[in-house]
Design a protein around this nucleic acid. Structure first.
Lengths: 222, 222
DNA sequence: ATCGCAACTTAAACCAAACTTAAAATGCGT
DNA sequence: ACGCATTTTAAGTTTGGTTTAAGTTGCGAT
């Protein structure tokens, strides 16, 4: 279990880190918003403990940034006891729970565990290829450097089929067989229409046409 | 399992190599882009770990070179933590996964294993002869030292017929019987036209003519 | 050497496949 | 029952793989 602890008060930070390590968490420390943001972007944590009053970059902004990037690591925010509105803002920005300072480390540990368990409860199931990822639980699709987008039912089924057979050439027939239950709309251009939709949402390159043969998953252009 | 580790920081490189060897990978080291490119071209690896900041030749260029050569060895790139765009560029250049520096060796091992497994899972159905290969899942044709190219329907069927009967002499009649359903276009020069197309795409030598008898698969000239 | 036929080469025509759009139908939640 | 989002139909347009066709090359037999 890896945890990122973001807290500018060094003394407090190392106390808390000690407690976390004692509880069995591999803990990474960060003391300002900019550094924290990079760490959160680049490394996979099971949870993040985030103080909102940070130098260089406000904690709320950092949190919003992560959520916009499609990073759904559970975040527990720390707020000053009397800053009631910060908690609301934090939850709205995508935090999973909050804790007022000062706090007892036991309570922190309890909340942390709860937050992690809750998150693992709906552990997200990812279908990934060339940096694109399809979350089969939420039906959301993410391409590198963009926020996740929700898909309609058929958009999702088409994209999932492609991602489950990367590189493979799939004929329109086999596609509609997989997407619909029964002897399908044989002469209908549904597939073409949806290919068109996905291309205009996510870029032309995402699906390649092999005229007369079928379609194939491509790689997203920038 | 052979792994190529490309990393110019010698200290880091030998640490990581030790970890890889301990995990059971036969590991080859390279410290600059030119050397790495040569090794990747000449020797078969199961995976490559590639730092992007290299002396002599940029890691991205090396990766692009390999992919242009049709080399599909899984590549895991290492990027500095603050170079977010490098990841995207790397994926576009054909990397299979990325890892920000600094990293934990356990994570490197996990990603490496995942990448190798994924790559093996992607095993395609290949029709192979003299270094040429026809992928019957993607309908793409690769000759040594070139990136795979997509084929049109009839190009594909002709090439497949030839590769399924290597060395065998195939008359134009038997060819058109295999390629078309019905009583074929007996007096038509379709076959000749397509033989011509394949030769100009992939080299004269690829198909040999036996005047009056038919055609036979040949070997591609370098 | 020359003639004739098979194979080669090129370009243009054709036509079904795929694309694009918008409107109509469907279905779902309130 | 209504409004909204999604799915499907439909019609017009573009694209590019296939085929035809006509001219050229070159092998091999006489």
């Amino acid at each position: 279990m890896r945890v990122l602890l973001v807290e500018d008060d060094r003394a407090l930070a190392s106390d808390v880190k000690a407690a976390l390590v004692a509880a069995g968490y591999a803990t990474e420390l960060s003391h300002d918003g900019v550094d924290a943001q990079f760490l959160g972007d680049e490394e996979p944590f099971d949870a993040i403990i985030l103080d909102l009053g940070l130098p260089l970059r406000n904690g709320l902004e950092v949190l919003r940034h992560w959520r916009e990037q499609g990073n759904s690591t559970p975040v527990l925010i720390l707020t000053a006891r009397d800053q009631w509105h910060e908690r609301v803002d934090g939850l709205k920005a995508g935090a999973d729970d909050y804790l007022g300072k000062p706090f007892h480390t036991e309570e922190l540990l309890a909340r942390l565990e709860a937050v992690v368990r809750r998150h693992h409860g709906h552990a997200h199931n990812l279908l990934e290829y060339q940096g694109m990822q399809l979350d089969t639980d939420t039906q959301q699709f993410t391409l590198p450097g963009r926020p996740p987008e929700s898909l309609t039912g058929i958009e999702y089924r088409l994209l999932r089929l492609l991602l489950m057979n990367p590189d493979k050439l799939l004929s329109k027939n086999s596609i509609s067989e997989h997407i619909y239950e029964e002897e399908s709309l044989r002469d209908s251009n549904v597939i073409e229409v949806y290919v068109n939709r996905l291309r205009s949402r996510f870029g032309k390159g995402i699906i390649q046409t092999q005229r007369g043969q079928g379609y194939r998953l491509g790689r997203p252009e920038s």
